[in-house]
Design a protein around this nucleic acid. Structure first.
Length: 194
DNA sequence: GACCAGATTGTCT
DNA sequence: GACAATCTGGTCA
């Protein structure tokens, strides 16, 4: 299946975050293919969004957020975890969509190996967990989603019920409803609002 | 199931 | 030197 075109990401960040729900994130790594349906996302905008890494302008870490839409932004957090983002914003702006949870499709045994966990339900239900399950690290920072091993493709055409909620784990900008989830999905991150 | 503390490091001030 | 877009494992129930 074909990757989503770059034009999909070259728009306002919020609708991209919402429309990424139900799409499939796929990683073709050496040992096989790992994929899952995106069931939870968050939008982080540019210099007008105090919760965003891009709020204070370009730094060494957040530079991908200012670069081409359709690229990957992966950062290391809390000394333990990577978080996977897709760069998405209109021309000359900044922004990215944090992928917070997946529903596993393919390569579940590989996920279990990378996570060192036999349970299926907790493999990818959180931003730090899914990067581990898909074996994503800062080496993948800056990759493009339209060529190569990492891609996002069209998923099922089923209409999901989508709910918008406040974002998780931030101290500012909490009044914005920039977190999007597929209502009732079993693989949402382990957090209050379902 | 709810609540809490500890891990651990890159990035920015 | 502070702290972060988190997870895990402990305790108590």
């Amino acid at each position: 299946m074909a990757s989503l075109p770059l034009s999909f990401y070259a728009r306002n960040t919020v609708p991209v975050a919402r429309e990424l729900l139900g799409k499939i994130l796929q990683h073709d790594c050496n040992n096989g293919t790992i994929s899952g349906t995106i069931v939870e996302t968050e939008a982080y905008l540019g210099t007008e969004d105090p919760a965003s890494h891009a709020f204070k302008g370009v730094t060494r870490r957040n530079r991908p957020m200012f670069e081409e839409p359709g690229h990957v932004y992966i950062y290391f957090i809390y000394g333990n975890h990577y978080c996977f983002n897709v760069v998405a914003h209109p021309p000359d702006q900044a922004g990215a969509v944090l992928i917070r949870a997946l529903e596993p499709i393919e390569g579940i045994e590989l996920m279990q190996k990378y996570r060192r966990l036999s349970d299926k339900k907790n493999l990818t239900n959180g931003p730090g967990k899914l990067t581990r399950a898909l074996n994503l690290t800062k080496e993948h920072n800056g990759l493009t989603l339209t060529n190569g091993q990492l891609k996002i493709i069209e998923g099922s055409t089923v209409q999901y019920k989508i709910i918008a909620t406040p974002r998780i784990g931030i101290k500012q900008g909490t009044e914005k409803l920039f977190r999007f989830i597929i209502a009732g999905n079993r693989y949402l991150s382990n957090n209050r609002i379902h």
